[in-house]
Design a protein around this nucleic acid. Structure first.
Lengths: 248, 248
DNA sequence: GTCTATAGTCGGATAGAC
DNA sequence: GTCTATCCGACTATAGAC
């Protein structure tokens, strides 16, 4: 990654340093006149950075392009975040926040003790979770950008990996808990964990191999109908997978 | 991508232009003294480029690093390929060649008319194909590099996409033919095609989410044993998926 | 075919006015 | 907080010796 920064002027991106200097971290909470002008720039920069980093990768992205797309000044990136690398991490945090919000209800349901009360409950919860993830991953306009960013981070983990991992690892663990209950196994079981990854793969492939999918399916894009078709097939598959095991 | 090149000196990377100038495209076929010194440099450059482009992406990769890793001179890239972009396309072609070679026997089997003679034959051929792909994608040392390169190309298709697509699209089509036969459907059937993508996803996820898989599975790497475990689960899943449909 | 030296471009970070 | 101007390092591509 880029050269490490040595010492720098104080900005909101450097909250800890600011406090150490005796300042109060009030930057985002001043009165109401011109309120949140800084926070607004910050938000626009993150949105633009998510897009550009996702399309071009960390190295390929230029701070100039991000600033232009955000309608902000080049120097604003250093001011608000400290530098390109810190902006990148801020984007990772933003993605985790946003996606956590979207899958929140389904995750809450799966985390509740009732979810594993019975095999039937676990099965219903798992299906609900899969539906939610298909819709979030394939349905949101934003998801394309998130996916690109996250996949790149998988290919070449950087300092932002841990931020992403907290979220994705949690999803896999939750899936493993449900599948373990359904199959009557331990959630530590190697096979259970592999199975959950295979299930995740069935959803993910439509995002990762997006360009290939569109060409082979002769779809102009993945819209409402296409997503419904995908959801149907995946639920059918998961059902078959679980049935086979529950059988003789 | 980088700025377009206008006019350039002639090199073997520019075979068409060379011929247009009246030269013969003999560069790789001269006598035996010092034979293939050029071809050797070329091959080392492609291997290094595959690695660096895969790790850093097109923009992130630098021709300096590629040249250094190849033990070649910086100017050799321009001489042999014409420039960074042409080298990138040469890598894509190399990947298709190599992988085609590895999956060749399985593809030949699946392409033969006997493969779809009966449902049983189609099923056996599909299983054979899946085993081969799991081994190639997860087993080869080189595959990690191929995968990184290919996935990046999916995220942000460049002029190399068509080269990759010929290969991947062919694989999906072959899978669709077999699955269609097994389920007694048309290979144009939308559901069949979605199902094949879902099957591919179950394999691919272990490459794409490699870092996540290692952490969650508590594996140091995907070796012989881990690959066997994955293969077992995926074959079980595919069997379950096909059974469910063939059933009542 | 391979090498060194360098031209020309562009990127991230900074200084300091407002 | 935002802006312009600028520095400086790193990159691709080229020229031309060997």
């Amino acid at each position: 990654m880029a050269g490490a920064t040595t010492s720098r002027k104080t900005g909101p991106g450097d909250a800890a340093a600011a406090r150490a200097d005796g300042e109060l971290p009030v930057s985002r909470h001043y009165r109401r006149a011109r309120r949140d002008r800084g926070a607004d720039t910050r938000a626009r920069l993150i949105a633009a950075a998510l897009d550009v980093f996702g399309r071009e990768g960390f190295e390929g992205a230029t701070t100039r392009e991000i600033a232009r797309e955000a309608g902000a000044n080049l120097a604003a990136i250093v001011y608000h975040f400290g530098g390109k690398e810190e902006l990148y991490r801020a984007v990772a945090e933003y993605i985790v926040e946003r996606t956590s919000g979207l899958v929140g209800p389904a995750v809450a349901l799966a985390s509740a003790p009732q979810a594993t009360e019975s095999v039937e409950a676990a099965r219903a919860t798992l299906f609900r979770m899969i539906e939610t993830y298909v819709d979030v991953i394939l349905g949101t306009d934003e998801a394309e950008r998130w996916a690109r960013f996250i996949i790149r981070e998988q290919l070449q983990p950087t300092s932002a990996f841990d931020i992403i991992y907290r979220f994705m690892g949690g999803t896999h663990a939750l899936g493993a808990k449900l599948v373990a209950r359904i199959l009557g196994r331990s959630e530590e079981d190697e096979e259970v964990r592999i199975r959950v990854f295979a299930m995740i793969g069935q959803i993910m492939v439509f995002r990762v191999a997006h360009a290939l999918v569109l060409r082979r399916m002769e779809w102009p894009s993945i819209g409402e109908d296409e997503r419904a078709a995908i959801r149907r097939v995946i639920l059918l598959h998961v059902e078959a997978i679980l049935e086979a095991e529950a059988g003789p």
